[in-house]
Design a protein around this nucleic acid. Structure first.
Length: 176
DNA sequence: AGCTATACCCTTT
DNA sequence: AAAGGGTATAGCT
C-alpha cells in the first residue's frame, strides 16, 4: 500500500490516506508519521482521493464515493463496519448498542451493554476513518468518545457539525 | 436524579 | 496470552 497526504480543515490538520489497487485501505489523522510511510506516486489516485475527501470536508458532496479495500478488517469487525456504512446515511447518527443490534454480529451472543462496548472497540480500531463514518456512532446519552487522543473528540465534533447533527460552535472553522 | 461499579466481548500489542 | 476500550445498565446514595 502507498500513502498520500490530504490537506483538511480538521482541527487535527492534514490526514494520511493509504491506497491499494482495490481502493482506500487505511487512513489516519496523525500528521507526523508521514516520514516513514511509502509515498503514493500514482498521480491519478492522489488527485481522486484529494478531490473526493476535499469535497466532502467542504460540504460539496455528501458521500466520499471512494472504493474501500476491506482487507485490513476481518470477521465481525468487517461486518460491523459494513453495517455502519450501509445503515447510517449522511447526517444521521446511531448509538453503539443500536449498531451492535443492526449488525447482527452479537445476535443472541452477548448482552446489550457488552455488545456496545465491543462496537466501541471496533470503531476505535477502524482502519478507514471518514469513509466508514465511525464518527456517526455516538453514545446513548451524548456524543460519546473518540480515539486518537485529545484531538480525536474534536475531529468527531467537527465532522458531526459538518453534517448538521450538532449546532456550530465558536471554534467551528468549516464551511456553512 | 446522579454517580459508581460491573459486565466478560473483540482487537491490538 | 494479556490488557484495555469512542459503553450500557443496574444499584446505591
Amino acid at each position: 500500500m502507498s500513502w498520500l497526504r490530504v490537506e483538511t480543515p480538521l482541527p487535527s490538520g492534514p490526514m494520511h490516506i493509504a491506497v491499494t489497487p482495490l481502493g482506500v485501505v487505511a487512513g489516519g489523522y496523525l500528521g507526523d508519521e508521514a516520514g516513514e510511510l511509502p509515498r503514493c506516486t500514482d498521480e491519478a489516485k492522489i488527485a481522486a482521493v484529494k478531490t473526493r475527501i476535499g469535497d466532502y470536508l467542504a460540504g460539496r458532496s455528501r458521500e466520499p464515493g471512494l472504493p474501500i479495500d476491506w482487507s485490513l478488517s476481518t470477521g465481525p469487525h468487517r461486518t460491523v463496519l459494513q453495517t455502519l456504512l450501509r445503515e447510517v446515511p449522511y447526517g444521521r447518527t446511531i448509538t453503539y448498542g443500536e449498531l451492535a443490534a443492526r449488525s447482527g454480529v452479537f445476535e443472541g451472543v452477548a448482552e446489550p451493554g457488552l455488545a456496545a462496548r465491543t462496537v466501541g472497540q471496533m470503531m476505535a480500531a477502524n482502519p478507514v476513518p471518514l469513509l466508514v463514518p465511525c464518527h456517526r456512532v455516538v453514545a446513548a446519552d451524548g456524543i460519546g468518545g473518540f480515539g486518537g487522543g485529545r484531538v480525536g473528540i474534536e475531529v468527531k465534533r467537527w465532522l458531526l457539525t459538518l453534517e448538521g447533527v450538532l449546532e456550530p460552535t465558536l471554534d467551528w472553522n468549516g464551511p456553512l
